[in-house]
């Protein structure tokens, strides 16, 4: 790790001001992507601005039709929330399936969403649950928010404040984990919203990061069952490939995990 200066602001405005007045700053939340990167000397921010002590970034609110989660909320807190479990059990299960116990007690929803790692879990829920990403300055619909691998609509210095999920009629999440890292190698979040429309978001597999599988959505709109997906495949050229899973295997897993998400609506299926 290169030398860096650590800051822990108590307010949003203090954090933004620190960012704007520093050379090579970086926000820090749970640190699960950033800290390993720093330790490997692959990044060298001169100022680390830890956003976890800012009160308005924490907390959970569940209304009649929304679940709102502050960006500095840890995965373990989301997984343990009875309100979230009652409203969107698949979201609760997703949070409880991230990493291991230690990771879930450090990692945050904001960090996961702001980084847009192609193997992260939360982006699938954000996209499938038609969420709105609130920042310190605006509200961004999920469809506009994710812009490719590690890329989002966030501008330099913009802080992700909270994520507002629509409570669906029902949703399911199925994940096939990388046998080494336990990150998603292919995962599907399927939701039927209260207005009847279906969203299928795939993470861990696409070479552009999280994406909506519209062909699957169309079939499931007709008939929300695994049988409706029989024979549906996805083009391997759209998939990532690596030593753990070549693109053709990932494409196969996307189809299987989408079927399993449908078979497990109201919960999760983690392999």
């Amino acid at each position: 790790m290169y030398a860096t200066t650590y800051h822990k602001p108590k307010t949003l405005s203090e954090a933004v001001s620190l960012y704007e007045n520093s050379e090579e700053p970086s926000y820090l939340s749970g640190g699960h992507t950033l800290i390993p990167t720093l330790k490997s000397r692959l990044a060298a921010p001169q100022h680390l601005i830890d956003v976890r002590a800012i009160p308005e970034l924490s907390g959970i609110e569940v209304t009649a039709d929304k679940v709102i989660i502050g960006s500095a909320t840890k995965h373990a807190v989301v997984a343990a929330s009875r309100e979230i479990k009652a409203a969107i059990p698949a979201l609760s299960g997703l949070a409880g399936s991230i990493g291991d116990v230690q990771v879930r007690h450090m990692g945050t929803i904001g960090g996961s969403t702001a980084n847009n790692d192609p193997a992260a879990d939360y982006p699938a829920a954000v996209l499938a649950l038609d969420a709105v990403v609130h920042t310190d300055r605006r509200a961004i619909p999920a469809g506009d928010y994710f812009q490719g691998l590690y890329t989002t609509a966030l501008e330099p210095g913009e802080i992700l404040a909270r994520v507002e999920f629509k409570i669906p009629e029902i949703a399911g999440y199925a994940k096939f984990r990388n046998p080494a890292s336990r990150y998603s190698m292919a995962a599907a979040f399927v939701a039927r919203h209260r207005d009847g429309h279906i969203r299928v978001a795939i993470t861990g597999a696409g070479n552009e990061g999280v994406f909506r599988w519209t062909e699957a959505e169309e079939r499931l709109t007709e008939n929300l069952s695994a049988e409706a997906l029989e024979g549906l495949t996805i083009d391997p050229s759209l998939m990532m490939g690596d030593m753990h899973a070549p693109a053709d295997y990932r494409a196969h897993l996307v189809a299987v995990m989408t079927r399993r998400a449908v078979q497990n609506l109201g919960g999760t299926h983690i392999l």
């Binding site: 046998p179 080494a180 890292s181 990150y183 030593m243 753990h244």
Partner: peptide, 25 residues
């Protein structure tokens, strides 16, 4: 038998399993 492999990229000679991200235990 199940997970472990010191994988090397045949096109560069570079080890691919340099961390727990890629070396399964």
């Amino acid at each position: 038998a199940m997970w472990e492999l010191c994988a090397i990229d045949q096109n560069s000679g570079q080890p691919l399993a340099g961390s727990f991200m890629d070396y399964g235990l």
